[in-house]
């Protein structure tokens, strides 16, 4: 399996990372639209969508059966399923694969829950490094207010309640997100994130995203081979 990691594949892997409310999904959507309208082979995938392990994940979450280690392992299983069945075959088929969250989400979130950073990096060692990782660096108060302003129902793990930081779900969420944010900041050089100012206008962020991609990737190579 390891030899596969370093062989050059025809596809390209682009990931976005950032806090909930950082605006990354909006940027990813605009990027996808742009690439599609250029007539390129694009595929978009997001975290937590695989069918097979879904029942186990939701059962574990509902019954609060998960510890830091099992939480990490079940999400890694879920990721591996999507990786082996979607991401990798698409890269082999020469697609531009866009990932809304990738392994760095797990590195940040699971480290905050207490997992060893070395263990986590090994655990996800089967996954190829993306060609480009955008990190949407949105100031914490901005990201928090985008999520919390509507006073949404926060789920137990989403609010980080298992960390016992606070009894109040909103306060817990704030503290949890702050720790995740710090993990992202500590990782951005290690993994050469391309950091974008999440407080800038949607248009200027998107302009930068598109420029970066056009520079790094030979886009015309990713046109459809068949007539559509």
């Amino acid at each position: 399996m390891k030899t596969e990691l370093h062989t050059e594949l025809p596809g390209r892997l682009i990931a976005v990372e950032g806090l909930d409310g950082s605006g990354k999904s909006t940027q990813m959507y605009l990027l996808k639209r742009w690439l599609e309208m250029k007539g390129l082979k694009v595929y978009f995938t997001e975290w937590n969508s695989s069918v097979i392990v879904k029942s186990a994940t939701s059962k574990g979450k509902k019954r609060q059966l998960l510890t830091a280690t099992t939480f990490s392992l079940i999400h890694c299983t879920d990721f591996a399923d999507r990786y082996e069945r979607q991401v990798l075959p698409l890269l082999k088929a020469g697609y531009l694969v866009l990932c809304d969250r990738y392994i760095y989400t797990a590195f940040a979130r699971d480290a905050v829950r207490g997992c060893s950073r070395t263990w986590l990096r090994n655990l996800y060692g089967f996954a190829r490094r993306p060609d480009i990782v955008f990190f949407f660096n949105t100031p914490l108060p901005v990201a928090l207010s985008r999520i919390l302003s509507g006073r949404p129902q926060l789920k137990y793990h989403e609010a980080g309640m298992d960390l016992r930081l606070s009894h109040d779900p909103y306060e817990s969420f704030r503290l949890f997100q702050e720790r995740i944010y710090n993990e992202y900041l500590a990782m951005k050089d290690e993994f050469s994130f391309i950091t974008l100012d999440g407080a800038a206008s949607i248009e200027s962020q998107q302009r930068l995203v598109r420029e970066t991609i056009a520079q790094a990737i030979d886009l015309p190579r990713y046109r459809w081979k068949t007539l559509r």
Binding site: M1, I52, V53, L73, T77, A80, Y83, E84, R85, F126
Partner: peptide, 10 residues
Amino acid sequence: VLGETTRSLF
């Protein structure tokens, strides 16, 4: 139905 890595992790 599971890939090798997925089965290992499961």
